[in-house]
Amino acid sequence: MTRAKAVPETVTVHVPFRFVKRGGRKEMQLPDSASSHRKMDNTLVKALARAFRWKRILESSEFTTIAELAEREGIAPSYMTRVMRLTLLAPDIVEVILDGRQGPEVTLARALEPFASEWALQRLSLT
């Protein structure tokens, strides 16, 4: 049996992308027209998990102040306060982050900056 066409030995694939810094790491970013499944920002997800865990611990009355809990965790109380502020994010924003559907502009550094307490204003400033 013979082949009708010869199979090329080399195949060249062109994939347009660029490198962007995200959370201190370099990440490949595809053009807006390309469909891609975003992966979760593990740093941001971990911070959300910590925030809700610390909130639960404080609500259980195991510790009476953030300073006491921060001392046990071995971190600065000011950092703990900034991270715990993430528990005030709108539930749909938290869901988008956990699903990895947030935009590239939503990083941990940006999420730790002061944000509006009203959920509608959060959606405008973080997305």
Rank of each mutant, 00 (worst) to 15 (best):
M1H: 13
A4H: 08
K5M: 10
P8Q: 08
V11E: 06
T12F: 11
V13Q: 03
H14S: 12
P16S: 11
P16V: 09
G24V: 03
G24K: 04
R25Y: 06
Q29E: 15
D32N: 13
S33N: 10
S36H: 12
S36Y: 11
K39W: 13
M40V: 15
D41R: 15
T43N: 14
T43F: 15
V45F: 14
L48F: 11
L48K: 12
L48I: 13
A49K: 12
A51D: 02
A51S: 07
W54A: 12
K55R: 14
R56T: 07
S60P: 02
F63I: 04
A67M: 08
E68F: 09
E71P: 00
R72K: 12
I75E: 01
A76E: 05
S78I: 09
S78C: 09
M80N: 00
V83C: 05
V83D: 00
V83Y: 04
V83T: 04
R85T: 01
L86T: 08
L89P: 02
L89R: 08
I93A: 09
L98I: 01
L98H: 01
D99Y: 09
R101P: 07
Q102S: 13
L108W: 10
A109F: 09
A109G: 10
A109H: 07
A111L: 15
W119F: 14
L124C: 03
T127A: 08
